[in-house]
């Protein structure tokens, strides 16, 4: 598959207070960005569990974006610090699984930064496009099902 034909599939976890509203602002300001990212809303970026990220890759995502409030602006005082703390761990985990850690990105986008949201999404899509398809879904589907059975 050539780079031109490949359209990356990306899941974005957006905190409800800052990034979701920032993405809304990009909309009300009619800023344009590529459609590859499907947003999922959580109350806080701190809710995003490493298993959510793994689940997204296992379901066929080529990239995962986590976006929360700027440090200091978190609606839950320091929930986003928990995210920031977890982020390097998640990156390490991806490395161990042979996934390029650049496929996971953490960004701070405030409710006022519609322009930043549009820019971040555009840049991330381009970066993942260059990394090419992950194809993890087919590789580890069986393994994942086994793991899920254990944890359930």
């Amino acid at each position: 598959m050539s780079a031109h034909e490949f359209e990356p599939r990306i899941v974005g976890f957006l905190c409800r207070w800052c990034s979701y509203n920032g993405a809304d602002l990009a909309g009300t300001s009619r800023m344009k960005y590529p459609p590859n990212l499907i947003p999922i809303k959580t109350n806080c970026s701190g809710r995003v569990d490493p298993t959510h990220v793994m689940k997204a890759f296992a379901e066929g995502a080529d990239g995962v974006l986590i976006s929360g409030c700027h440090p200091g602006d978190c609606h839950y005082i320091n929930g986003n610090w928990r995210t920031a703390g977890r982020y390097p761990m998640m990156k390490k985990l991806l490395e161990q699984l042979n996934i390029d850690p650049r496929r996971l990105r953490l960004e701070w986008v405030s409710a006022a930064e519609g322009d930043k949201w549009a820019r971040v999404v555009t840049e991330f899509i381009e970066e993942v496009r260059e990394l090419g398809p992950l194809g993890w879904k087919d590789q580890v589907a069986d393994e994942y099902e086994q793991q899920e059975a254990v944890s359930a």
Binding site: I40, T42, N43, C44, G46, R47, V48, D49, P50, T51, H52, H75, Y76, G79, R82, R86, S151
Partner: peptide, 23 residues
């Protein structure tokens, strides 16, 4: 915020309306 849910090693806390199942 759900921080406790994603931090628990044994997956015990449940955030109503934002359960792992739902996400």
């Amino acid at each position: 915020c759900g921080v406790c849910v994603s931090a628990c090693g044994s997956n015990v806390p449940v955030q109503r309306g934002f359960t792992d199942e739902q996400i």
